[in-house]
Write a protein that binds this DNA or RNA. Structure first.
Lengths: 185, 185
DNA sequence: ATTTAAGGTCAACCATATTGACATAAATAA
DNA sequence: TTATTTATGTCAATATGGTTGACCTTAAAT
């Protein structure tokens, strides 16, 4: 156990700085999701739908398994959300021509419109923060945030990986995500 | 509506940078809360309990209203969580000597132990990211994150506001938080 | 003495996550 | 070709943590 409180540990003096980091993550994430949540509520959707719309929009042709890999939720949990989006024609499903088991997910025009509306608020918020902070600060932000992300997911963020889908990581056997505990937030 | 896609807007070329920011927030927050979630599950608690423990630990003597102000949830929602923590002696309540209606919340020794265990994982993660990124990057991280946080809450993050409680913002009349929509994440 | 403020509580409901079990179709291996 | 594995879907039960609405108590303020 790392004793962050003992005088021996050189991090002692930075406890407050580190706690500020914790709080920044809490407040930033809360406010960051606030505006989209309002828009989503008008369509009867929630944050889970937003995440699906976002990542499908970002990676057209994404498969269900790849999406599960990104979101780290169970397929049962995804199915409700994805099912609603497909049923209401926000997301389109069609079999992968190279592998009939896989479904390629794409946004419909309707889905793209919603995606734009949702992302707009977040893009604006980030653009504003980036502009106010300046290019160097943005680079620092990237580095720190990447350091917080688990190593396995870093490449996902650094490499845009746009366009068509690509095979997921070797183990897609399991029906559940790595973290076996409940999520909710 | 800000058209972030039109060629006229100078932000066009940075769409990918901005979307990377969106994704960094998603992945960082998810991984940041992952470890505490595991610990909490062992005590039968969830993320909501963590937030209460964290902020009460950070601001001993905090009142219920102030806590609601920070968390931006309804008091009914808080009551379940806070009630469990008080009942199981993680949090202590006693009337404010200056205003008998207010309850001063503090962590018990048991509560402090859990708080330490939970925070340790997050402090370590942040310390690691800070150390790897360097002091300048950390400053940039702070600036960008603060820019993302709603203005009203910025002072809460910048000014440690430690020790004893202080009056909440003028309007604590309402029973509900500003954002009327559902939260879940 | 009345009103306002801080807090608590009961009840119903909703969104999103979980586990476990089972089903189907397509690809791959024996 | 048959058997197995992979990708996906689905049913059911359960948990967490949000929400609204209504009502209550106690203490402070007017």
């Amino acid at each position: 156990m790392v004793d962050l409180k003992s005088g021996i540990n050189p991090l002692f003096l930075r406890q407050d700085d580190l706690r500020q980091g914790i709080e920044l993550l809490f407040y930033a994430y809360r406010d960051f999701t606030g505006e989209p949540d309002e828009i989503l509520a008008r369509s009867g959707f929630g944050r889970a739908h937003h995440r699906v719309i976002y990542f499908v929009g970002r990676h057209p042709g994404l498969s269900v398994g790849e999406l599960l890999d990104i979101l780290k939720i169970t397929k049962q949990s995804l199915s409700r959300v994805l099912g609603a989006l497909v049923e209401q024609s926000f997301v389109d499903q069609k079999p992968d021509p190279n592998d009939g088991r896989r479904r390629q997910l794409t946004l419909t025009e309707k889905g793209k419109r919603l995606e734009n509306e949702l992302s707009e608020t977040q893009l604006r918020r980030i653009a504003h923060a980036y502009r106010d902070a300046g290019a160097e600060a943005v680079q620092g932000f990237r580095e720190v945030m990447l350091g917080i992300v688990n190593e396995e997911d870093r490449r996902r963020v650094t490499t845009p990986q746009r366009g068509n889908s690509q095979r997921a990581s070797p183990d897609t056997t399991s029906q559940k995500p790595e973290n076996h505990d409940r999520q909710g937030d």
